[in-house]
Computed example of a mutant assay.
Amino acid sequence: MTVPAAPAHPQLPQSLLDELSQLLGNRFSTSASVREHHGSDISALDPMPPDGVAYANSLDDIVAISTACYRHDVPMIAYGSGTSLEGWLQASHGGISIDVSGMDQIVQIRVDDMDVTVQPG
């Protein structure tokens, strides 16, 4: 059985690339190696890299990145540790991978009910 190729998708708008570059500086990348890393997981599926990778360090970053992608109608793929077994990291429709691995802080510890709130990374 032949597996069909992923459908072609439009390139990212230059205005989105400019906006994310201005917003994030060197925390936004379109390099092939970074994209390949973020489009691969531990599944048996072939990599499908995103068109760009945005590294979020705060909730404000996530809101700004999401707002820009929404405004340009560009898909977003959340990226934490890259251990998906089901192919969730594959950018089958292109888009921006939002890497939250840098968001690794403990937000709140509630000893009384043995509960901890942490950031997604």
Rank of each mutant, 00 (worst) to 15 (best):
V100F: 08
R27D: 13
D113V: 00
N57R: 15
P120S: 11
S97T: 15
P120D: 08
P49A: 06
V100D: 06
L17R: 12
I62E: 01
Q90Y: 01
G95R: 05
I77S: 10
F28S: 03
S66K: 06
D18N: 08
G25Q: 08
S29G: 12
Q119K: 02
G121N: 14
Q119Y: 01
P10H: 04
Y70T: 12
E19H: 04
A44S: 15
D115I: 14
P4Q: 10
N57H: 08
S58P: 14
A6K: 05
S66L: 06
Y55T: 06
A8P: 07
G80S: 13
D104R: 09
P10E: 09
D113N: 13
V111Y: 09
A5V: 14
G102N: 11
T2V: 09
D115M: 15
E19N: 03
N57A: 15
L20P: 00
N57M: 13
G52W: 00
L89E: 01
P49D: 04
Q11L: 08
T67L: 11
D115K: 11
P7R: 07
S21H: 02
S58M: 10
Q14S: 09
S31A: 15
G39Q: 03
S66N: 13
G25L: 12
A64Q: 07
A54L: 03
L24C: 07
N26W: 08
A91P: 02
W88D: 15
I77H: 07
Q108K: 12
M76D: 02
V107Q: 13
H93E: 12
V116C: 14
D60C: 05
G95W: 04
T117G: 09
P50F: 00
A91K: 03
L16I: 05
D51C: 03
H37K: 15
M1N: 10
G94K: 00
P50K: 03
L45Q: 12
S97G: 10
L12K: 01
S58G: 10
L59W: 10
S33Q: 15
A91Y: 00
T2F: 13
Q119D: 05
L16Y: 04
M76G: 09
V116D: 05
M48R: 15
D61F: 04
D104S: 09
L45S: 04
H38P: 01
A8M: 10
H37C: 10
A54H: 02
D61Y: 00
N57V: 10
P120W: 09
V111H: 12
A56Y: 03
T117W: 05
M1T: 14
G39M: 01
I65M: 03
I96Y: 00
P50E: 03
E86K: 05
T2Y: 10
D18H: 09
V74M: 05
V63P: 01
A68N: 07
P75N: 08
R71Y: 05
A54C: 06
I42L: 14
L20R: 00
N26R: 14
I65D: 01
I65F: 00
R27A: 07
V100Y: 03
P7I: 08
S81T: 15
Y55G: 00
A56G: 04
V3Y: 11
M1H: 10
N26Q: 15
S101K: 13
G52N: 03
Q105L: 05
N26E: 14
L17M: 06
L17C: 11
I106Q: 07
A91G: 15
S40V: 04
P75L: 09
D18R: 02
N57E: 14
